[in-house]
Amino acid sequence: MEPGSDQWRDEQRRDILAFARRSRRDAGGFAWLDNDGGFDPDADLQLWITARMTYVFALAHLGGDDDALDLAEHGVRALTTTFHDDVNGGWYAEVRADGKPAQTGKFCYEHAFVLLAACAAKAAGAEGADALLDEATTVHRTRFWDSGAGRCREEWNEDWTVLDGYRGANSNMHSVEAYLFAADVTGDAVWRSRALAICERLIGLHARAHDWRIPEHYDHDWTPIPNYNVEKPADPFRPFGATPGHAFEWARLLTQLAASLDEPAPWMQEAAEELFSRAVDDAVDDDSPGIPYTTDWYGSPVVEERFHWVIAEAVLAAHALSASTGEAIYDGFARRWWAETDEYFVTGTGWIHELSPTMGPSARTWQGKPDAYHAFNAVTLPSLPLAPSPAQTIERLT
């Protein structure tokens, strides 16, 4: 069976969902899984994991998995109870087993995934999704969206009275994804306009000015901080330097956004192709499989570990650009990366999340196999049109 073929991806989707089902906690939410699919006893409950798993199971239900709706509703219940701040609104990023928050800040990154989960759950008809979507859109609109900056704020304290000075591209990228879903699911085009505003600034302005390497970290007035986390380069969410996987992810999102617009600006296609090309030039080596996590500002690898999410986004970008341009070069990259995924990342117990530069075991950044979001998207989205969002197009995929 050829890696990346329809049959191969269908089989992988079934395996990914079978592994993901193990993360369901009877007490609520979805657990961080270890390499064998057991609960990691040392891991607190993470909002991003429960939100991502809710999204996955909601789309799986729409795609024809009969038992997935119950799991999506399980996630919705956790988002409206376990993680929810009943006093101040919004959601806690991390909760201990006793139900108390492990940290009390309110982060755009996690809230973007709550919005994404709420949109998918609404489309799936999950019980409780309407109320979850109402609050998620309200919180994003009133707390995180900064109309003056045309981008999202990053972090508030518990009662929304103190705004942190850091601004980040990663959370804005996932907000673009969530906003595309929100525009389709709610019918409110303002979310698509906000997604475009973010892309215009972070990609059309900042990435273009940095030779298509995307600055990830900024201060309060959106001035890039190029040496942010230089002493902690392998941070899982805020690494130092440029992140090729995010260049691929932005390329895909730009292509999807352009496909959703009646008259997309020509710069969007240009930017998507340039981001892809820059990431390939900096991080793809014909003599070495996989794609390193980060590079410096001259394109030299810094963190050379290979993550499953990076190659997943690379292959999705290749499929998206193949669909939008018709150019065979992207099909060639997709075939290469599917073959490498099949050889190195696919196992009988979920996709390996991290490998060393020599493609051996590694846990420098990621312990275990915490979620199925990137892998599920990788094997699902190539079967769907670029627009509208999968919530509208995935019906009876399986």
Rank of each mutant, 00 (worst) to 15 (best):
V87S: 11
D34E: 12
D67V: 08
F240T: 03
G128D: 07
A118D: 09
L257S: 01
T341G: 09
N172C: 14
H210Q: 14
A117I: 07
G125M: 14
D67P: 00
G38S: 11
A183T: 04
A259R: 10
A78F: 02
V139F: 03
L59W: 04
T294C: 00
F345D: 01
V190D: 13
S5E: 09
H246G: 02
E155K: 15
D130R: 14
G290Q: 05
A265H: 13
H220Y: 11
P390M: 05
V379P: 04
W145N: 01
L69V: 06
S389H: 12
Y179A: 01
Y179C: 05
A120T: 07
F376I: 06
E327C: 00
F107H: 14
N35Y: 10
D40M: 08
D282A: 11
W191N: 06
M1V: 15
D184A: 07
P264M: 07
H84V: 03
N157S: 14
G326K: 02
V379A: 08
A283R: 04
A363G: 06
F248M: 13
H210E: 06
I198S: 02
L321C: 08
A314T: 11
W222Q: 03
F83V: 04
H111D: 06
D188L: 10
A387S: 15
A258M: 00
A259P: 12
H140V: 13
F30Y: 10
A363P: 00
E11W: 04
V176E: 00
L17H: 07
E2W: 00
A314M: 12
F30H: 03
L202R: 06
L79V: 04
D164M: 01
G128F: 09
T341F: 06
S277N: 15
P239I: 03
D65G: 10
R278E: 03
K106M: 05
A123M: 12
M1R: 14
P239F: 05
A242H: 05
T104P: 05
E154R: 11
E249K: 11
G348S: 09
Y228E: 01
A169S: 13
R9Y: 11
D85F: 08
D36T: 13
D371G: 04
A387Y: 06
R96F: 05
W191A: 01
F248W: 11
T104L: 13
G150Y: 01
F333G: 01
P264G: 08
F107K: 11
G290R: 03
V346G: 01
V310Y: 02
A320L: 09
F144L: 14
H174R: 12
T365V: 15
W8L: 11
E155T: 14
G90H: 11
D371V: 05
W250G: 00
T349G: 08
S324D: 08
I49D: 01
L196K: 06
E158P: 12
H111L: 09
N377E: 12
G360P: 02
H246P: 02
L132T: 04
H246Y: 02
A271M: 07
L17S: 07
L316D: 03
G89Y: 14
I352W: 03
A178W: 03
M53V: 10
A207P: 00
E270H: 13
G28N: 10
S322Q: 14
